[in-house]
Design a protein around this nucleic acid. Structure first.
Lengths: 192, 192, 192, 192
DNA sequence: AATGAATGAGGTTTCATTCAT
DNA sequence: TATGAATGAAACCTCATTCAT
């Protein structure tokens, strides 16, 4: 399928170095077709990004749904995330990294990220509410942001280490996120 | 100065969209001079990256030095980091993001990041040793990676929110990193 | 045709001064087409050289074939050569001259010339053998080299003198080559 | 000296690839000096050409002067020529080759060559007159042209074969020129 | 799930050449 | 046998993008 070829080429070469010629060739069709169906190179990239992004979101949502407590929600979300990234090693992570850096996609990817952060923030918010506590929204945002950033970072690490295990990575991430450095240093651990 | 102009243009446009013409013009000199002094476009970008990277490292190192306990080291490092990023809003964060995505610089920036992660890992390792505990090296790496990732993420956030306060951001980050979500949810906080 | 334009422009301006822009314009197409079909500027020049060289070689070979004695072979070869050069006045001679001087083509053109010299040397060798005589190979080579050089020289002269007659030039060359100055001075002549 | 450096660089790199920077560096002075004393790159090349050309001419003239008969004049001229070329292996031949091919020097080098051809033609003319014979001027020109061309060719050959002996080369050339192929094939030789 | 052929526009890079000292 | 620093101009090459079929 066309988008698959595009994702592959964009990942391998990077947005700029990727040529429409190569993408068309990979897809086994002619360039004008690519333009007819997906439009401009930029639009094509955005299309790739959105498809992959949606898939990721859905994968996570599907997993999180069944959990009740905050920590189990977080855990399942993380596991789904890393599993997805691990399964699309040179798809998602690379594409996403590009999108965040390349000027014309900054907004598109920022928006996606925003959605993600929002979800995490909401999750944390609900957990707080359940404890009868409340936190200013900004703090929640920042906390969520940090969690997302840490996850992205480990996702990159995962994409670069083919031998690494997604589930184990998720566990580590969960520990860092849930317990924090202090507890970890004290020997506490969180296990599913 | 020439590097300043280059940093500015690279940040605004992105590596590829940045033209040597614009950089030269910004610097108030002619293109051949840029080539004479900094070499190729790629070399120029690397030069920018290195200068900013070095400055950042130095800023952090200078602050960390005076701290004794692990948490204070972490705190001071974070504060220095966010202060620096806040002061160079469209310098470091953007450049660094680019470097990580753009093919030819992937390795160079990966190396820099590796150094950073290494430092954090070492810090955590020493803290562990002080507690008489020991952890497998990979786990340390992953933990450090997560912390660095979270910080990068907040750095981006900071770069995108001109009104945000670096020191406060650092505090939040410290809380997330040190206490973890669980403690935070319980209402605990870490304060300098 | 594209190669024709290229030959024309290369001849007029010289390899370096010739611009791909001008070649494309002469051919009535756009620059990218030139690159698409013939490749790099260097490759384009080589293509010109080879086409013209092959044509020349074929023209000579076709004529020489029918001759039996050494002098008639030489005569026919020379006639074919000068006729060809006369008919492509600003093609072959100029291109060839360039190739010999321009660094990147030195070896390619040297090779072509070597083939030519080899042919002449072989012809002389056979003539000698027919007379029951034998000569060291180096001497044969040098002699052939001299003949080829003399021919090249007259070819240049012919290219520069539009009014000159190729066949008459061939006759002169034949006389010089076959009889040598001594005989010519004595009033002897060789006629077809 | 400046011209020496220029000759060396032009020979090694070719006119175009030679950079004024390298020439100045070789000469151990600064570029503006080169411009101050020798002018433009083209003028510099012409200056090289003329100096070397003059030296060659003088070397030949000095030798020819003492000879009486035509064949001895020719012989001495040839010997002087090849000796000179042999002694300046990568000076004269390469420079001259370039000059003949590179557009802006075509006329300058043609003129030099014309002088040479003229001298040879005159020599042949005198020899003919001494024999009481007379030939149309054009024929004389063409004959001289052929001789000069053959010599140039062997000069190139000599420049490319460091082990070759100039005097022996001159002898071969003399034989070809004086006796012609027919006599050589019959086993006749000319010896000084 | 058409395409081959064509192009406009732009970018990096390199030098010959010249001021200002 | 002055020079360091600067530049204008131009050349090669590539690619996203579109007609004409």
């Amino acid at each position: 399928m066309m988008l698959d070829s595009a994702v592959r080429v964009f990942s391998r070469r990077g947005f700029h170095a990727a040529s429409m010629d190569e993408i068309a060739e990979q897809a086994g069709i002619s360039k004008p077709m690519v333009y007819a169906y997906l439009g401009t190179k930029e639009e094509l990239f955005v299309a790739c990004l959105q498809r992959e992004g949606t898939r990721l979101m859905e994968a996570i949502a599907a997993e999180v749904v069944g959990a009740d407590t905050a920590d189990r929600q977080l855990w399942r979300g993380l596991r789904a995330f890393f599993t997805f990234v691990g399964a699309h090693r040179d798809g998602w992570a690379v594409l996403y990294r590009q999108a965040r850096a390349q000027q014309p996609f900054a907004s598109a990817s920022a928006e996606m990220r925003e959605r993600m952060v929002e979800v995490v923030a909401m999750m944390l918010g609900r957990a707080l509410a359940a404890e009868g506590r409340e936190v200013r929204d900004t703090e929640l945002q920042v906390m969520a942001n940090a969690l997302v950033g840490a996850s992205e970072s480990l996702a990159d690490w995962l994409a670069d280490h083919p031998e690494a295990d997604p589930e184990k990575t998720a566990t580590w991430m969960m520990n860092v996120a849930w317990l924090g450095a202090a507890q970890l240093l004290r020997g506490e651990t969180w296990t599913p």
